[in-house]
Amino acid sequence: MSDIPATPSAPNQHTADGAVAIGQPLPTAAGTEDGGLDQAMPTGGDTPAGRSAWRLALQSFLDNKLGIAGLVLVIAIVLFCFVGPLVYHTNQISPNAAQINLPPSTRHPLGTDYVGFDVLGRLMAGGQSSIEIGLAVAVVATLFGVLWGAISGYLGGVVDSVLMRIVDIILAIPSIFLFIYLATVFKPTVGLLIVVVSALSWVGPARLVRGEALSLRVREYVQAVRVMGGHSTRIVLRHIVPNTVGTIVVNATFQVADAILILATLSFLGFGLPPPAATWGGMLSEGTNYLYDGYWWAVYPAGIIIALTVIAFNFIGDALRDALEVRLQRR
């Protein structure tokens, strides 16, 4: 024992802290005088320099090439639709019989359609409504669905059964028929389309979040809140919902893509926004009438931009999912 330097051991450090009253400054120099690495360190060890979970996820997202491509594409499409018309002025209101079905030229880079509207300009105008409705649907459907699912999953029991049977019923409604029915009864507007598409889209996030809530509610930190005396409201809003945020964000991106597709489908079937409003689906629908006449510019631009937008949002969704999962599996 003689050659052992008399460095006090950790328990002594505890004792050194022993007399510390709450509110007093940090008793850092916990007894080590020999200049070891742990001199100014509390007994629990060093506190790491912080990097938030979000920053790690962002880093991982930025490493994902497809995700970046999707993001760039979405930004490009948004700029095209919303800034484009400010630069590239076209008449999208009054038909012009003199310019029907003109092939692409320097005046009309993508030609004109069957009533004489400039196709490029129409893509921009149609994109505005698609993106507005797509984003709005994603937000409304996600907010509603997340709350529904979180409450259902957390409370469980009878509440869960009732809430989830409602979801099942909505899933059982053939959506196209419902859309067509509603569109024939009401005059479709942007607002109505948002409501109707959201009303059918929220069930997805609701089911996802319910599944997560089922596993989250037995986590110890949720039980800890109950032991502290916290309400269910607090548990759902402060603990369950924030912890499903990864799933939610990823799902919301897919929701945007889905909504744009639904919208295109509806417009294609003739139940979208009524003319003269421009929609991508409507352009496709009209263009198909002239497919055999060789007017390719009436079909391809709209088809391609729908596909690009959907793909771009899906790329972002995939990259987000990877990013948020990597955060969990890191190390």
Partner: peptide, 21 residues
């Protein structure tokens, strides 16, 4: 005060749980 008492630096309050051992 409580962080100090359990042997951690008060700066720990700004960190996320996954950063700790």
């Amino acid at each position: 005060a409580m962080l100090t008492e359990v042997g951690l630096q008060p700066a720990a309050a700004d960190r996320y749980p996954h950063e700790f051992s």
